[in-house]
């Protein structure tokens, strides 16, 4: 099987681990990842003012690229790209006036009317592969690893693009259970990590991150799974600083869900680029014997 894939900017540098692990894991499931040609930045955040159509042009152009290449589904990994592309797609599908304006503005492109479906990899895995098949393919079950499934904002909100209803965490829970991990649900699973506010004074983002990590630790989690590079930054990369400042007391190493999928499927840790996570992440997997023997 082949899938059309939109990576987004961060997955080509700071979050190359999110992508590399996904590509390697999907290969073991017999799925080829085909990156769409000439993709551009999705804009990271969806424009919320009613009259602002120029910021929809970026995400829509990516959807046009996918349509040109004959894709019916465009798979994404980054939560923020997923949200921005899916929301722009809704406009093109449902709002005739805005669709017409955007299509006329991009007169060098073919017309687009929401024909491509934007799909997050978690949805894709459940729908097209299934937890049972994944369970059968697991080589290194993540036994004894207690993982908190963290969704943040953009996978679930707003409701019309949520990968599942607000307050429900079945997709990541289903995946982690199929991998043999113990899922530790926690109340802050959909609390915002502070997002881009980390550039606006930092204190705010740090305190929301502390609330989330404290809550995950209190629920018994020893690891946190996410699909968003900004969540991973606020909760993972900043975690050492939170510990140092005494804002949290227990470390909860963070992973991309694709990295946990990959190691369980027997992908070598080197292919999951754990050097881009904090050191505690790989150490935890080693301690828990969750890595394939070299």
């Amino acid at each position: 099987m082949k899938i059309s894939y939109y990576p987004g900017c961060t997955l080509k540098s700071k979050a190359a681990n999110l992508e590399a692990a996904a590509v390697a894991a999907l290969a073991t499931l017999g799925i080829d990842v085909e990156e769409i040609d000439r993709w551009n930045c999705c804009g990271a955040v969806f424009s919320l003012t009613a009259d602002d159509l120029i910021h929809q042009v970026g995400p829509v152009r990516n959807l046009v690229r996918a349509k040109e290449q004959g894709a019916t589904q465009l798979v994404t990994l980054c939560s923020m790209c997923y949200n921005t592309l899916a929301r722009a797609n809704r406009i093109m599908r449902d709002d005739a006036v805005k669709r017409d304006t955007i299509n006329r503005f991009m007169d060098e492109e073919i017309d687009y009317a929401g024909e491509v479906e934007v799909v997050h990899l978690l949805t894709f895995l459940e729908r097209e592969v299934g937890w049972q098949k994944i369970r059968e393919k697991v080589k290194v079950p993540l036994e004894g690893l207690r993982v908190a499934p963290y969704y943040g904002c953009t996978l679930q909100r707003p409701a019309d693009v949520g990968i599942e209803p607000f307050g429900s965490f079945h997709l990541m829970t289903g995946l982690l259970e199929a991998l043999g991990a113990t899922v530790t649900p926690f109340a802050a699973a959909d609390t915002c990590c502070g997002s881009y506010q980390v550039l606006n004074g930092e204190a705010g983002a740090r305190s929301t991150a502390a609330v989330i990590l404290d809550n995950a630790a209190a629920s018994g989690a020893e690891a946190l799974a996410t699909s968003c590079p900004l969540c991973e930054y606020n909760l993972g990369k900043q975690q050492g600083r939170l510990l140092e400042a005494g804002q949290i007391t227990t470390a909860v190493p963070t992973f991309y869900f694709t990295q946990l999928l990959a190691v369980a499927l027997g992908v070598a840790p080197e292919s999951c680029l754990f050097d881009l996570n904090s050191a505690a992440s790989l150490d935890l997997l080693k301690t828990k014997n969750c890595l394939v023997a070299a």
Binding site: A15, A44, C81, L199
Partner: peptide, 28 residues
């Protein structure tokens, strides 16, 4: 502007994921 991109220290820019920078500049 609410935040000044040019006032951001280079080491912060080097550390932050692209989506953080793009999102903050878009919103602020």
């Amino acid at each position: 502007n609410y935040i000044e991109p040019s006032a951001l220290p280079a080491e912060r820019i080097a550390e932050l994921p692209q989506i953080a920078l793009v999102a903050a500049f878009r919103k602020l």
